[in-house]
Design a protein around this nucleic acid. Sequence first.
DNA 1: CTGTTAGCGCTTTCAT
DNA 2: ATGAAAGCGCTAACAG
Lengths: 332, 332
Amino acid sequence: MSTVPKSAPEPTLSDVAALAGVSRAIASRALSAQPRPVSADKRERVMRAAETLGFRPNSLARGLANKSVNLVAILVNHIHDLSDLDLFDLLLTEIQAIGKQVIFIRVGAGEDAERFLRDGVAYHVDAALVFADFADAATMRTMFRNNAVLMLNGHHDAGAASVTMDEAKGIGEAVADAAAKGVRSAMLLTGRMMSLVEQARVASYRAALQAHGIELLAELAGDYSYASGRQLARQIDVDTTGAVFCTSDAMAMGVLDAHRQHFPDHRPARFRLYGFDNISLTQFDAYPISSIGADRKEYVAQIVRILNDPAGLASGGGHVLVATRYVPRLTG
Amino acid sequence: MSTVPKSAPEPTLSDVAALAGVSRAIASRALSAQPRPVSADKRERVMRAAETLGFRPNSLARGLANKSVNLVAILVNHIHDLSDLDLFDLLLTEIQAIGKQVIFIRVGAGEDAERFLRDGVAYHVDAALVFADFADAATMRTMFRNNAVLMLNGHHDAGAASVTMDEAKGIGEAVADAAAKGVRSAMLLTGRMMSLVEQARVASYRAALQAHGIELLAELAGDYSYASGRQLARQIDVDTTGAVFCTSDAMAMGVLDAHRQHFPDHRPARFRLYGFDNISLTQFDAYPISSIGADRKEYVAQIVRILNDPAGLASGGGHVLVATRYVPRLTG
DNA sequence: CTGTTAGCGCTTTCAT
DNA sequence: ATGAAAGCGCTAACAG
């Protein structure tokens, strides 16, 4: 197929060994990241030879021998929620910082993820970060060759590590805030209900609202998007609704736009409005939406910590919870 | 290192061959994607054996033998511009659709990209899509093992294919629109000037403004972000400025927020405002910003087309231009 | 059409 | 500490 005119035929370990006047084994050891027994002078010669040749280890070959490629897969439904921007850039940075590269897999609704993965390099990653909401841990373990699966979609399982946001806390704070401001009734705009995270989120809202004696007038099913919030907002009766809780900031933005006239100077004149995820867009003047979110730095740090402990990861490591908190802004 | 308790030792091609009662070569051919000479019945037996064993080809091994891994790298400075959301989800989808997987590389300002790439799988990708703005084609060719580099950052070179947006066209239309509305003076808010794309963009604005006899009052250096637009907006003298052109929609959003009072009902009462990229956020009510952009579907289609022609790619394939156009909204 | 034989580039016993 | 040799799993000549 690829009859590419290769200018210089890549130097291999053998070339380095030859130039250094040592065996391939020595060259391999000298170049290894882990400490391996090699005499100082030979190590030196190997390093020098590698340098002059411009040697680049072939990580595929290394992976084949090692069964480890310093590659992690990130499995997502898609990347177009506004909250993705805030997360993935940081995640990518931190994963690269520990010397691993990232292969992004977009599985949409999960249709043919299995087939797609089967013949790809992704199947051989050292670890898989699962954000896609359809997937349970057992399926993921068979989908990827190894057991090193980190569940980030709310699916729990003794065999897989997980990092989950403790959303009940932030939700409790937000609802308490509303209650303290005299809210007696509320509506809830929800997202993709097939997601376990979303189910837990909704349950938390119900519980918190009940605990504070706030009547839940209705739950409207959206899809996290601005458009769905904009659309569902029509069903809000501003005369009877004390607060609108949305399970995404984007939906809250839609609601806000639909009811601008009730938010003079962005401050609620009729109902209070709460979003979710605390995306950076809520810092834009036009959408000063009170929200709920975790410290992303900490969330990512936990993920990376687990990634760095392959033994723990593979053995089903820990299940860690990251706290969320209520972040008041103008609309709440 | 990874002493993972592997339940079942992955079946290999040898196992399949054994169970099917054929040689490994036959098994390999039967399982190959390309048509290879194998008798119908043996092929059948191999397929059945592979099926019952749950055989998954090891793509690392295949890659080692083949020198091709069906993997493409996407090199970016970062992923946090709003326009990234609109692009990468689509790009990922389409690349996966042609059976390739994507490894994302975030190089920040380009500090140690070389070192980082050196020992990663990314070095062995079949092709590299370069969005990062610091990189010239020659550097990229040595950075990745092969010549299959596709430049998307405005850097041209006889040795590498490229897809570039023909921004002059859209910019010309936008400026013409302003001129037609009586605009006689304007300010320009720019982004990262080390980017070739940005330099061309700014040059296009200068040329178009001059051509239409619009006086360029000042160029203010921002960084594409909302915050920078919000900040620089203070320097706009609404009494003398007929229009503000921004080289990103996010900056225009910042300007809009800074001067809300001059846009009653989002319509310009003082100066006209133009963004760039035509991001989906400009469809939100609060930011109805007139913008300039290309058809993303076509842009991505061109990229994928080139990706699918490895011969052309490696030999420095074509340089294709994708048209942009002016997209009027309320602020223009 | 089929099986045998070499590798792809690297790591790792295992003797020395 | 060192080198020879045996793989990792697969594909590609090359004879039959």
